[in-house]
């Protein structure tokens, strides 16, 4: 195998690990933001609802790469302005952190919509029953609404995840050495850009295929109670 790709296969696989790391960490951030956004829109007061609604609108209206550039270059200036006041040295923003923050922030909005729909699909009677038992609002959410909504959230969740994985390719544009970046380096050095980009395309398809299997498994597990 090593011979076929001119000894660059380990580098591509290392890039693949970075791609998966970025994807998983952004996913964690997006889940956190998504739950916040969904709760704000469903249970919040007027102000939190306005914030949550403008968050989803802005994210859906502005291309991901523009947001990433804004956070990468803008964050650099912001952090150093703050750093100057405390007399610290020049700080470089890590493209990995910029990438994770941007992608997590973007998909938080989509996860928020998925969770909102899923929460609204939960049987009202179950929630009322919880209240009738004297549970507090938070208890109802943790013990009833949240576990019951997972089933409804699975298809949307996996759809967001698949789009998220593909979006991680953009971190190569801000210089993170993910699998697209590694393919560029390897392809340029060996003058075989086609070979390496196609290889990376296949690796993305591989991640998609594995995710599909995981989704089937989750759907079977969480639809047990459904008849």
């Amino acid at each position: 195998m090593n011979e076929i790709f001119g000894g660059y296969l380990p580098m591509i696989l290392k890039g693949m690990i970075i791609t998966i790391e970025v994807a998983l960490l952004s996913l964690v951030l997006s889940l956190f933001l998504g739950i916040l956004a969904a709760s704000a829109r469903l249970y919040g007061g007027a102000i939190s609802r306005i914030i949550a609604t403008s968050y989803t609108t802005i994210i859906r209206g502005i291309p991901d790469l523009v947001l990433m550039m804004l956070i990468f270059f803008g964050g650099q200036i912001l952090i150093n302005n703050i750093g100057d006041k405390f007399g610290s040295d020049y700080i470089d923003i890590d493209p990995m952190i910029a990438g994770i923050i941007t992608i997590g922030f973007i998909f938080g909005a989509y996860m928020g919509e998925t969770f909102r729909g899923a929460i609204m699909a939960v049987n009202k009677g179950q929630i009322e029953a919880g209240h009738a038992y004297g549970m507090t609002g938070l208890q109802v959410f943790i013990h009833i609404t949240f576990p019951a909504m997972i089933r409804h959230a699975i298809p949307g969740f996996f759809n967001n995840w698949l789009v998220l994985v593909k979006t991680t390719a953009l971190v190569s544009v801000i210089g993170l050495e993910d699998m697209v970046y590694s393919a560029k380096v390897a392809g340029d050095t060996l003058r075989q850009p086609f070979t390496f980009y196609v290889l990376v395309g296949f690796l993305f398809l591989l991640i998609t295929a594995v995710s599909d299997l995981a989704m089937r498994w989750f759907e079977r597990k969480y639809n047990v109670g459904d008849h």
């Binding site: 593909k166 979006t167 697209v180 560029k184 850009p193 980009y197 395309g201 993305f204």
Partner: peptide
């Protein structure tokens, strides 16, 4: 399946940079 399963960035790179290999 291929076009929906891979990033558009890769598709553009294959066409713009990749094809020059041949």
């Amino acid at each position: 399946y291929i076009f929906r399963g891979t990033p558009l960035l890769i598709q553009i790179f294959i066409i713009y940079y990749g094809f020059s290999q041949f």
